[in-house]
Amino acid sequence: MSDLIEVRNLGKTYRKATGLFNHKEVIALARVSFTLQAGETLAVVGETGSGKSTLAKLLVGIEQPDQGEIWYAGSQINCSEYRKTNQFIRYIFQDPARSLNPNQKIAEILHAVLRYSTVLSFDQREQKISQTLRLLGLLNEHANYYPHMFSGGQLQRVALARALILDPKVLILDEALTALDPSLRAQIVNLLLELQQNTGIAYLLITNQLRLVRHFADHTMVLHRGECLDYGPTAKIFANPVHEFSRKLINSVQY
């Protein structure tokens, strides 16, 4: 099976001011490599500041790498192609309320996504919006709601709708399930697993919820200070992590 995404030696360094004229370099990501195949979930775990969100932002073009390569479906992605790949690689942020315009109805938000990335007519967009809302367990009438009118679980479904309405091949979940209570998280996870089974979508799951990782992810990568310490099948990482930091991280959670 060919790789949907291949990342080769990806690196990112920031310059941080330490005084009026002085700066120091902070390595956010250091020569990280991995692959992601269709229908697969890769979990990226690590402490705050380990480089998890930096990795996600590099994959969707919010940030540009200093070194390394990102390949999608056999072609290398360059800066000019991020708009094109935005349809196939979608990003869900940790807080859906902050990522949605509070002054726009959900229909307006979803129409804008479709206008930007497709050539669908208004009627075709209306049909696509209705199909996507139903797919995620929402009603047609929800299209006329504002974000503040939804519960937390519904709002996460709206965020999923905005990402999935373009039928992406890869969905990046950047701590997108962390704020949900356990029952709502279980509902969203079951929905994501069903979507994956039906469509073959791949997930890059950024989280510190190791119980979720063990249940949800096919492969796991452990980041620490921008470096990849462990990477492989989730069952193998949890049973026999190579690096001491990975062992401490896994052993800190009682199952």
Rank of each mutant, 00 (worst) to 15 (best):
M1Y: 14
L4W: 10
F21L: 12
V26E: 13
A28G: 09
L29C: 07
V32K: 04
V32H: 03
S33W: 11
S33H: 10
T35R: 10
L36H: 05
G49A: 09
G49N: 07
K52E: 10
S53F: 12
G68Y: 14
E69H: 15
E69N: 14
W71D: 04
W71G: 04
Y72S: 03
N78M: 12
N78L: 14
T85D: 00
Q87A: 11
F88C: 08
F93N: 06
N101K: 00
N101P: 11
L110H: 07
L110G: 04
H111Y: 13
T118M: 02
F122Q: 09
Q124H: 01
K128P: 02
S130Q: 10
T132N: 12
R134H: 14
P147W: 03
L155D: 00
L160Y: 13
L160Q: 13
R162M: 08
I165R: 02
L166N: 08
I172A: 06
T178N: 08
D181A: 02
D181W: 02
L192I: 05
I201V: 14
I206A: 02
Q209D: 15
L210R: 05
F216I: 05
L223H: 06
H224W: 09
K236P: 12
I237D: 02
N240G: 05
H243M: 11
E244Q: 15
I250K: 07
